[in-house]
Amino acid sequence: MSYSVPKIAGESDTIVGRTEDHLWARWEVFVRPRGGVTHVYSESVHAPDAETALLNARDTYLRRVEGVSLWVIPSGAISRWDEHQALPESRSEEGSARRLWEAFIRHRRGAQFLHAGSIVAADAVDAIVRARDAFLTKTDGVAIWVAPSEAIVAADPDEAEMLFEPFADKGYRQATYYDIPEEVGYM
């Protein structure tokens, strides 16, 4: 549903500052749909901890989509880069302590982030540089997110049945379930 509620004469706009405090942390959600090749960004949920975040993501984003895999990542664990930020030309030296990162890429404005793959890197900036080198041919309109692999909370594949199957037989959530005569036009 929607719509603009007009301003009341004389009412001043409520100016909204930057207030990012939320009692429950924000978690970014990624879903791999059935038949999909990769995890696709699916907005966020709020949750007090990882288990609740995973359950909330399932209850929110898999009501219709038949998912086969679900990830949640604490928003604060993600480092973000886009075309406006300068990046070092070269990667960090080999030999420093390195770990595994997951890279997510938005290939153009308006598109969703997609999981591109894993990389080994020294830190977040290094991970972004390496992700750019590994996965991109251009940078215009592109954005990159990286998160340490260990920050990703994934649904256990053994649990796929209980997490993803219960939505399969709820046909009433689909428009085709309803028989609407053609004469009344598209609905």
Partner: peptide
């Protein structure tokens, strides 16, 4: 709310 939060305001605040 999730989209609004990308503008730097939390759902709790809204």
């Amino acid at each position: 709310y999730s989209a609004a939060e990308t503008l730097g305001v939390s759902r709790d605040e809204l």
